[in-house]
Amino acid sequence: MQRVNMIMAESPGLITICLLGYLLSAECTVFLDHENANKILNRPKRYNSGKLEEFVQGNLERECMEEKCSFEEAREVFENTERTTEFWKQYVDGDQCESNPCLNGGSCKDDINSYECWCPFGFEGKNCELDVTCNIKNGRCEQFCKNSADNKVVCSCTEGYRLAENQKSCEPAVPFPCGRVSVSQTSKLTRAETVFPDVDYVNSTEAETILDNITQSTQSFNDFTRVVGGEDAKPGQFPWQVVLNGKVDAFCGGSIVNEKWIVTAAHCVETGVKITVVAGEHNIEETEHTEQKRNVIRIIPHHNYNAAINKYNHDIALLELDEPLVLNSYVTPICIADKEYTNIFLKFGSGYVSGWGRVFHKGRSALVLQYLRVPLVDRATCLRSTKFTIYNNMFCAGFHEGGRDSCQGDSGGPHVTEVEGTSFLTGIISWGEECAMKGKYGIYTKVSRYVNWIKEKTKLT
């Protein structure tokens, strides 16, 4: 034993070699072989497995989906700052455009905790909710729209109204504003409101030439003092309507412009014939205590009207009353817009006519005020429907199939267009061939041609 100890002390290297040989010859039971080890760690190889990531292109799944990435790591994937920024906006807080917040056709661009709407022409605001041009839906104005110097929408209202708090709607500024039905039992019968379409306001006024200088022999019209197929109006439903009495009662109609003036057809009036105007009328054979009678003290036909040349060209006249009318729910003026808007309103496509005229061709006159909704007829169809001249200051309205029309005794009465609950004068009943005849239409004086003249002559002093 002493000898062994001496050998170990003198030859430590020998001992180490012996131990190493023993270990190498022993069977290893701690580690699995290569094949079995792979069965336990069965993990798919990654895209760049075996390579240094710093030297390969980034992978979106590896960089940002398996674990949260930084902007720089995302930049490695896209290799483009702009594309990385677009991805980053949604990656950080989701897609803010998912709810489609942009209105009126706006395009949404996502941002971090926010979004941006790219608005089409005519709109602005956070969600493109603000109209900035009158060309689109009248700028959301209830009545009139004008573009300011910086191309912003400025709404306005006709006389007797003021802008509401929203700067879009119009509200009454006087007790009985024009064009409004205020009798409670008839307010439910107000005709369907007309909503502004998209309009090209630059070209809204037709490029028409008034044929002022045409000389033409007097034409022989049949029954051209021209509501057939209409309905009984309720008291106060058309408070701007008046009836004219002269040699015979209810020979023509008219509309209240203001307390002192009536507008009617020029062919209705004769110099030297006494005319009485009755406002607030409903049943011409009954006294309903809503009527107001006034005498006409002055007749002003349009300066281009000449019955000797043509009885229905420039067929418009103004009547001055001896005493002002007292405005109330049964006696209310009709609204008159400017030339541009009167023309736009007419193009809405349908209007209402009213009167006490004959209820059928050569038949009896109506006792109760009649009204009828009539569609506008395109000019080409209008011209083809008659052998008589249709001037540019006239328009056609009615039904091709016949059966409904204005008729004798309705002449001078109103053709009105309702705009968001307020009625505007767009025409004056003038003439036609018979009444409600198939293929024939009622012919009306186009008020847009005469609004400046009306307003100039009827100013209240």
Rank of each mutant, 00 (worst) to 15 (best):
C396L: 02
E165W: 08
P44S: 10
H415M: 03
C108D: 00
E61W: 06
T85M: 08
L383A: 15
S220D: 14
V228F: 10
I284L: 15
N80T: 14
Q90K: 09
W88A: 15
L19T: 05
C268V: 00
M437K: 11
S156Q: 09
K362W: 04
Y444G: 02
P301I: 09
E171S: 07
E53K: 08
S411V: 15
N304T: 06
T458E: 01
D131T: 07
A9K: 07
V77H: 13
D223E: 08
E286R: 10
L460Q: 11
I136N: 10
A279I: 01
N100C: 04
Y330Q: 05
R62F: 09
G412Y: 06
K247S: 12
C178W: 00
L325N: 00
Q408Y: 09
I275C: 03
C119E: 00
S169I: 05
H302D: 02
C134W: 03
E270T: 12
A366F: 09
E286A: 09
V153L: 08
F176G: 02
T190G: 12
M65L: 09
V374A: 11
Q57V: 13
Y450P: 00
I275K: 02
K438S: 15
S406I: 11
S448A: 12
G442W: 04
L376S: 04
T85R: 06
C268H: 01
K126H: 09
K339E: 12
S406N: 14
V248L: 14
G357Y: 13
I336F: 04
P172E: 05
P333T: 03
N452W: 05
Q143I: 02
E288I: 05
V30T: 14
K347C: 03
N304Y: 11
I336M: 06
G403C: 07
I262T: 02
E72K: 11
C102I: 00
D110W: 08
C128P: 00
K362Q: 08
S406L: 14
G427I: 00
N151K: 12
G442S: 10
R180Y: 06
E79G: 15
D378L: 04
F144C: 00
A380Y: 14
V331P: 01
N42P: 13
I40L: 13
E129Y: 02
A265Q: 03
N295L: 07
I297K: 13
G272K: 09
N135K: 15
T85I: 07
H415Y: 09
P239Y: 01
L425K: 00
A317I: 02
I214L: 10
Y391I: 05
L346M: 06
V296T: 03
E340F: 13
T209F: 08
L460G: 06
E286H: 10
M394D: 02
A26M: 05
K126P: 11
N304S: 13
G21P: 05
S430Q: 06
V451M: 03
F87R: 15
A265W: 01
S25G: 10
G349I: 02
R191D: 09
F224G: 11
C18E: 02
H34I: 10
I334D: 00
T276I: 10
V195Q: 13
S448H: 08
V242Y: 00
L189R: 11
Q216F: 09
V419M: 09
F78W: 10
L327F: 11
N138Q: 05
C69H: 04
G94Q: 14
F345C: 02
V277F: 01
C252P: 01
I15R: 06
C117Y: 01
D232N: 14
N304M: 14
L376R: 05
L318G: 00
D249E: 12
F87W: 11
L460Y: 14
G432P: 14
T386C: 08
E86H: 14
A250C: 08
Q216H: 13
N258L: 01
F238W: 08
E193V: 13
F251I: 13
Q2N: 11
V419P: 01
S184Y: 11
W88M: 15
N393H: 12
N135I: 08
L24M: 11
D131L: 08
N258F: 02
Y352N: 06
K311W: 04
E259I: 05
S448R: 02
V368T: 14
L321R: 00
L383Y: 10
V278P: 00
I443V: 08
K45H: 08
Y330D: 04
L211W: 12
C396D: 01
S255D: 01
K260L: 09
Y305M: 02
H400S: 12
T287K: 06
L319A: 05
V242R: 00
L41I: 11
H415T: 00
G21L: 15
K440G: 11
G21F: 13
R43Q: 14
W240A: 00
A173Y: 10
V263N: 01
F78D: 09
N138C: 02
Y352S: 11
G58N: 15
A207C: 06
K89A: 10
G246D: 06
K45G: 11
C252W: 01
G58K: 13
C155L: 01
K168W: 10
E116F: 02
